[in-house]
């Protein structure tokens, strides 16, 4: 009975881990001009999300390495290592990504290609290196954990502006900056969240923090974005993302290394055929 169960599910992941980090840059000012007034919180919330997305346009393509550190309730850690290739998609449907596992060793070489969509289901293909097989897989799994971490699939894949409705709540200080605090509600199927509260700073429109509320509407996880660095004088990327689970007391850190932009990748590097190539 041919089943490739372990790798099949273990390596399932979602689009654009880095869409988490794709936020923006811009001149220093208190608030983006032309933002709708607080009296229309839905329009203001959406405009803040759109501004954040707009400021990151033009990065073209990118490569990066990611280390994932899983910590359990008693403080023991284990690591995963992944390599990413991304190409910008300007049609609003989300960026294409191809990720390859380097660690753990038993799934080394396993790779995932994702074409995300806002309205239809994401398209995903998994490459299993031991059997040299490319498999089209279901993208219906949104709320399940990604390789045993505190990140759910949707925390990676569902980042396009169109996947949520928005409500601006307030502006408040966050660290040494001011943040818009916006509630967003998933509009896609199978989400594990009723809502998320995001803190987006008013200077560069970068995500600073996200609170996740589960199906019972209790606060389950908090994600913080740290060590933002400016690349190519234009694109901000966080060096570290820390997800804390308040219920299980487990946490996961994503540490990003060696970002490179405009590396010459084309859409040909994101075909199902390219999944089978050596990386």
């Amino acid at each position: 009975m041919g089943m490739t169960g372990r790798t099949y599910r273990a390596a399932l992941c979602a689009a654009a881990i880095f869409t988490l980090s794709i936020i923006s840059s811009g001149p220093l000012r208190a608030e983006a001009p032309g933002l709708p007034a607080p009296s229309d919180p839905a329009a203001r919330g959406l405009a803040i999300a759109e501004e954040s997305g707009k400021r990151d346009r033009g990065w073209g393509d990118a490569k990066a390495d990611m280390k994932m550190v899983l910590t359990n309730a008693s403080g023991e850690t284990s690591e995963r290592a992944l390599r990413f290739m991304m190409i910008e998609n300007t049609d609003g449907d989300g960026n294409w990504s191809l990720m390859t596992f380097d660690k753990p060793a038993d799934i080394e070489g396993t790779a995932l290609l994702t074409y995300p969509h806002v309205k239809e289901a994401d398209e995903q293909w998994l490459y299993l290196p031991t059997v040299k097989r490319v498999k089209r897989i279901s993208s219906a799994n949104k709320s399940g954990p990604f390789v045993g971490s505190e990140f759910a699939f949707e925390d990676f894949s569902a980042q396009q502006v169109g996947k949520f409705t928005y409500k601006w709540l307030r502006d408040e200080p966050c660290g040494d900056r001011t943040c818009h605090v916006v509630e967003r509600t998933p509009q896609y199927e199978n989400s594990g969240y009723t809502r998320q509260i995001v803190w987006i700073d008013t200077t560069d429109y970068l995500f600073r923090k996200t609170d996740f509320y589960d199906r019972k509407d209790s606060l389950i996880k908090t994600l913080t974005y740290q060590d933002y660095k400016l690349y190519d004088n234009k694109f901000w990327r966080p060096g570290e993302l820390a997800m804390a689970n308040h219920e299980t007391k487990k946490s996961t850190r994503l540490v990003w290394q060696s970002y490179a932009f405009h590396t010459g990748l084309t859409k040909d590097d994101f075909s199902t055929a390219s999944l089978e190539r050596a990386r």
Binding site: M1, M3, G5, R6, Y8, R9, A10, L70, N72, S78, P104, D106, I107, G144, P145, V147, G148
Partner: peptide
């Protein structure tokens, strides 16, 4: 005819069980 059931724990150790019949 083939029938298989696969359980994956999605835990840190990637635990899984498979039972299949032909």
């Amino acid at each position: 005819g083939f029938l298989a059931l696969r359980w994956t724990a999605n835990d840190e150790a990637s635990t899984s069980f498979l039972g299949g019949a032909v």
